[in-house]
């Protein structure tokens, strides 16, 4: 893995009920994620994805680039910007920014319809 190299793209489309399953799995039942009517009442276009679900997709893309070994994902930092929605494809892309001491630093972005839902994501993975 060299500087400037891209990591394999990850594409996933969360279905309509994914936020409910993620709520159960994570314990985060904030109604903005699972109740479209509540979400609209607070000014959102509809129920939005959990940011930490989107972050999990960024984690998967980076662990995937490191042989799908959870031990090789050492660090991940992200900024939550924009809103993610169910039933729209998420595309996670990444580029190696730096390689040192057997570790690669990967700049990663998660987008839906060209809107960045996770930006300035930086992952450190063990390589080699």
């Amino acid at each position: 893995m060299d500087q400037g190299e891209t990591i394999p793209e990850l594409r996933v489309t969360p279905d309509k009920y994914l936020p409910h399953r993620y709520a159960g799995a994570s314990g985060d039942f904030n109604p903005i994620h699972i109740d479209p009517e509540f979400a609209k009442q607070v000014g959102l276009p509809g129920n939005i994805l959990h940011g930490l679900y989107a972050m999990a997709q960024v984690a998967r893309a980076n662990a995937g680039a490191a042989g799908d070994d959870p031990r090789k994902l050492k660090r991940l930092s992200v900024q939550f910007r924009g809103m993610g929605f169910p039933e729209k494809e998420i595309v996670v892309t990444g580029t190696v920014k730096e390689v040192r001491d057997g570790h690669a630093v990967v700049d990663t972005v998660a987008e839906q319809d060209g809107n960045k839902i996770i930006r300035n994501a930086e992952a450190e993975i063990e390589i080699g």
Partner: peptide
């Protein structure tokens, strides 16, 4: 309130 950013540094699985 917004969850603005998040970082994790992992050690032992």
């Amino acid at each position: 309130m917004l969850h603005g950013s998040q970082e994790f540094v992992w050690s032992e699985p």
